[in-house]
Design a protein around this nucleic acid. Structure first.
Length: 631
RNA sequence: GGGAUCGUAGUCUAGCUUGGAUAAGGCACCAGCCUCCGGAGCUGGGUAUCCCCGGUUCGAAUCCGGGCGGUCCCGCCA
């Protein structure tokens, strides 16, 4: 049995057209489309246009000729019912009875595995997200990153990838120096009930003002220097602060159902020997060397115009290590990227940070710990803001300079645009994120959802209300972030982000709850149903749509091509798909009674409800949206 | 200066990678729909120079060239 029923049907059509027209199947596949209106057919081909150009003949006449040939060949075809032309278009109608059987048999037998395919089986991917500074709470822009990254990881897994989810923690940045300085002056005392990351965020905004004072800045810069020494007081203090902050930030991730395998801390990159190894490798490359003269004398630089792409560049020298020997961001990032691709032996030691709510531990790199074997990696995905397209590209280009062309090719910048407010952009320094942290948004969403849940379930207890409303809140936020094309800037408005109607997460969750309710009322037993009864337009449209699920997931991964802006991840294609099947189910629900239908039809419709429930549940899990039985 | 990206109804968006039939949804607004499998739903009502100009094509929202407008990037910074 095919794990991809829609692709199976398309293949049948393609092979028939190919046979009749003697065009290669791969070419024919490019000429297949879904008609704008299902009245016109289930599958269409524009092959007549294609041949018209080649043969210099009228496409309408060609279409008519092809249809005659196709009809001759399709005697007793298992799937194709009729073929028609409409002008130059050739429209193919499938056999509804057979479709119902093929699609529902596949879904019901695959169950939780429906949607999973093996196109990328055996491949291993490493994905980094969201890499938030450990000095403040996640604002909603960070949530966008984290939700995209987590969903991409799910999607890759569904197409066969083995995925390693990592996070990067910059525990040595200026922001940490500022907080260490601040907490040397005041007691480390969050307010009653205040989350530690929110507390630091509050201090951080204060420090930005104090940083304008020259003496304060001098002291903070000095602490920044001390942070580089793992034996210093500042380092130990910083590590305490960062650990507490990261654990608080993790609570936000967990609310969203986001988990990691590893956290890579900047201090480990600095002190594990990784940098030295990487530097050594770099210096063996002809295009990376120490500048002898000029403004950048003493720096280790990459000469970028040795790559065709940068030929004729005005200032081709990119500094990797400063004249005082310290790493730049790019220098450290190159070393990190080499580690991600397993080009250098893993110098890190790992320690368990905590056990996540999914039962799995998350490990962090540490100065002392145990060795782990992360294994081979075929592709690396860095989920990073679109604004960083240039620096990301440089990192990959430098891998290329070093001779690691395959690794460079398999390095992906998964870019996404910022989340902004109506007038202002989120600014860490100005603290414009206050009131718009991910925690704030989720809390507000839970409150709104709770009102709705209470209204609908007046007899249920507080636990039920809290449980359901938090799942609705997560569903709404995750859907909101995924449904926006990553290329597009989001202007955050409460009314849109927390909308529970229409094209929104809760609508999908609701369609699942409705299907689930029908199945509960029908009782557990189900007989063999005569699925060929499912031929009404409402039933048939739903069947065709749920048949496409595995194909949709595959198409998203196949479409992840490298472009100048980065590698695009069309998360919105999957939310749109979920919305489509939920809508078709709603229409079916309103027009086709299930429990009240007679005998055979009831059994057949129940099978369809069961298949829909499986599909929407698997789709929701892919998107990280909680699957709810009652809401 | 160089580069990237976005521009689609009142509004927010999808479609552009791979050209194809009447440009598809949500929100908002109006009017209907449960003797019911849950109304977070369904049905109907309508708005668009697809930013502009040109080109390629039988065919352009989609591809190419040139503009215009918004955003972003191009440090031994962080």
């Amino acid at each position: 049995m095919s794990d991809n029923p829609w692709a199976f049907c398309e293949d049948q059509v393609v092979s028939l057209i190919s046979k009749v027209t003697e065009i290669e199947p791969a070419e024919v596949r490019q000429l297949i489309e879904i008609p704008p209106d299902s009245q016109l057919g289930d599958i269409a081909t524009t092959v007549a246009f294609y041949l018209a150009k080649k043969l210099k003949k009228n496409p309408v006449a060609i279409a008519n000729e092809i249809v005659v040939l196709m009809r001759e060949q399709m005697e007793n075809h298992p799937i194709i019912r009729t073929i028609e032309t409409k002008g130059p278009y050739i429209n193919i109608f499938l056999n509804r009875e057979t479709m119902a059987e093929i699609v529902l048999d596949t879904i019901l037998s695959k169950n939780d595995e429906y949607g999973r395919t093996s196109e990328y089986a055996g491949k291993r991917a490493l994905i980094e997200f969201p890499a938030v500074n450990p000095s403040k709470p996640w604002h909603i822009g960070h949530a966008r990153n984290a939700i995209l990254g987590d969903t991409l990881a799910n999607v890759l897994e569904t197409t066969g990838y083995d995925v390693i989810r990592i996070d990067y923690i910059n525990d040595l940045g200026l922001q940490i120096a500022q907080l260490v300085w601040k907490l040397m002056r005041i007691p480390d005392a969050p307010k009653e009930g205040e989350k530690y990351d929110h507390y630091l965020g509050r201090l951080y905004v204060e420090v930005q003002r104090e940083f304008e004072d020259e003496e304060a800045e001098r002291q903070i810069r000095e602490i920044g220097q001390q942070l580089e020494d793992p034996n210093s007081e500042a380092f130990k203090r910083g590590a305490e602060i960062v650990t507490k902050c990261v654990k608080a930030q993790n609570q936000t991730a967990y609310l969203l159902g986001i988990y990691h395998h590893y956290q890579i801390w900047e201090s480990s990159i600095a002190h594990s020997g990784l940098l030295e190894k990487a530097k050594e490798m770099m210096l063996q490359c002809d295009s990376i060397f120490k500048m002898e003269e000029g403004e950048k004398a003493g720096c280790i630089v990459a000469k970028l115009d040795d790559l065709d792409e940068f030929k004729g560049m005005k200032e081709p020298y990119k500094v990797l290590f400063r004249s005082d020997g310290t790493r730049t961001y790019t220098g450290a990032d190159v070393a990190f990227q080499l580690w991600k691709h397993r080009i250098v032996d893993d110098p890190f030691e790992y320690k368990e940070l905590e056990v996540q709510p999914n039962g799995e531990p998350v490990y962090r790199t540490a100065l002392e710990g145990e060795k782990h074997d992360i294994g081979r990696v075929d592709a690396v995905f860095n989920v990073i803001a679109a604004a960083q397209a240039h620096p990301q590209k440089l990192i990959y280009n430098i891998l290329e300079l070093l001779g690691y062309e395959t690794a460079a090719k398999n390095s992906h910048h998964v870019a996404y645009e910022y989340v902004g407010l109506e007038d202002v952009e989120f600014s860490g320094r100005k603290g414009t994120w206050v009131g718009y942290t991910t925690d704030d948004v989720l809390r507000r969403a839970r409150e709104l959802a709770a009102e709705e849940v209470k209204k609908r379930n007046p007899d249920e207890d507080q636990e039920f209300v809290e449980n359901v409303s938090s799942q609705v809140a997560v569903g709404a936020l995750r859907y909101f972030m995924l449904n926006a094309s990553p290329d597009r800037k989001i202007t955050f408005r409460w009314s849109e982000a927390l909308d529970f109607d229409g094209d929104a997460g809760p609508y999908l969750q609701y369609s699942h709850a409705r299907a689930q309710r029908i199945l509960e009322k029908a009782g557990g037993e189900h007989d063999d149903a005569d699925l060929s009864l499912l031929t009404s337009p409402y039933e048939y449209e739903l069947i065709k749509a749920i048949a496409r699920f595995p194909n949709e997931v595959l198409e998203v991964v196949r479409g992840m091509n490298k472009q100048p802006k980065g590698t695009s991840f069309n998360s919105n294609r999957l939310t749109t798909y979920g919305y489509t099947i939920a809508t078709l189910f709603s229409k079916f629900y309103d027009n086709c009674p299930v429990l009240k239908a007679d005998g055979n039809l009831r059994a057949a419709r129940l099978a369809l409800v069961r298949a829909f429930r499986i599909t929407i549940a698997n789709c929701l899990r892919l998107l990280g949206i909680p699957v709810i039985n009652r809401m």
